[in-house]
Design a protein around this nucleic acid. Structure first.
Lengths: 220, 220
DNA sequence: ACCCTTTATCGTCAGTGTGACGACAACGAT
DNA sequence: ATCGTTGTCGTCACACTGACGATAAAGGGT
């Protein structure tokens, strides 16, 4: 018995949100849980995670980011019997469609931290958050939260939201533009709300950041 | 059907070695494979990995390091049917006893890279190596390869072996001694073969290195 | 005893990344 | 035109890094 569970994160209204579903069947009936389901016979693990992602959000994995997180197999974690959960971490841009075609009783984006989840999903969510925070440091993963083209300020807001910190706009600008292959200018500019027009960028080809953007406060 | 497989690494004769077992039963009879076995009913995943480690080496997990690596579940990876493998990465010091009490037909330390392994174990081994190399950068994990007390030169040899690089002894010395909580002096000194006596250290209490020891060559 | 080799440890110096912050550019609103 | 707001570039002191010189403390050979 192997299931795939999804820690599906996005940024809405300048806050980090996780997709939760209300359970329509026992156990934990009525409680919130991470979306997930059993792996089909002859289905690859990653493919199963992609399927879950598509079913819950309608996005194909190409737009955002999907990676394996960890596997949870404590004997008592599911009252129905021995069930192993392979958790995946998914990061997607803020979707225009607010969760379409979900097969659960109800699904909704909820701000993190969310607690009191079914099974051991509190732990899985915490692990997913820590992975996401950590990966922003040394990979260009923050772009997975953004639309195909974005401004540096929008990218900075991703970091500020996930890390719950404030970052200096000038230093941030310098660092992301000097990190080889992080972002590429599209040549266009755009005006967001107020102020001087900003350049638009798309994600670059790098898979690792050099130099990394370290979280502040870790040294002092 | 869930199995636990072990990427068990150690350093012998200044080279990185992985523990492999020769399969005594089909499938892949006679081929080398990572040690592993099925998870018992009511057995925790981590406990199963610890049990494997103890059965293969006689060491309790306390001495070295044991962490979950990833889970592999491609439909065709095991000819016998659908088997998921939860891989664990173990790092242990060079053991005086050369693999005692193994239940496999034969087990032996083999230098990495080793190829031609059974199942998808080539991939699992490669993933384990990359994880180990990466974790040396920002965690004090290198001490897991060392005896309880060790010299800085021995610690440096760990880095040089795992990264297959040469490191400047003077810069390395400066970095490990200035990284808060990495290593603590025991007060004793010891003479290894030739040269001036070296101070002995034990592992410190830090779980993260500040600043990190980055692999050379990644920037240029 | 004296040199020589080897290994451990400390210092120096230039180059680079970083945080704090000043300055200016380019928009909308008044 | 002026102001507030946001984007972008520059400057400076400081920390960390790599390259490498210098010294300390052992053993071996003569």
């Amino acid at each position: 018995m192997v299931a795939v569970d999804l820690v599906l994160l996005t940024i809405r209204q300048a806050a980090l949100h996780v997709l939760l579903v209300r359970r329509g069947i026992p156990p934990f009936l009525g409680q919130w849980a991470l979306p997930g389901g059993f792996v089909l016979p002859d289905e690859d693990l990653f493919v199963a995670a992609e399927r879950e992602l598509r079913e819950e959000t309608g996005v194909s994995a190409g737009a955002g980011h999907l990676e394996q997180l960890a596997t949870y197999g404590a004997p008592g974690r599911d009252p129905r019997g021995r069930v192993f959960a392979v958790a995946y971490l998914a990061l997607v841009p803020d979707l225009p469609v607010p969760v379409a075609g979900s097969d659960a009783a109800s699904a909704s984006w909820q701000p993190v931290p969310a607690t009191g989840l079914a099974f051991d999903h509190d732990t899985i969510l915490a692990d997913g958050l820590e992975r996401a925070r950590s990966k922003l440091e040394y990979t260009p993963l923050a772009t997975a939260f953004c639309a195909p083209s974005f401004t540096i300020a929008e990218l900075r807001e991703v970091y500020e939201t996930v890390w719950t910190t404030r970052l200096d706009p000038r230093n941030f600008h310098r660092k992301v533009t000097s990190a080889e292959g992080f972002i590429e200018p599209t040549g266009e500019t755009v005006i967001r709300e107020r102020g001087r027009p900003a350049q638009l960028f798309r994600r670059g080809s790098a898979t690792l950041l050099h130099p990394a953007l370290l979280r502040p406060g870790s040294s002092a």
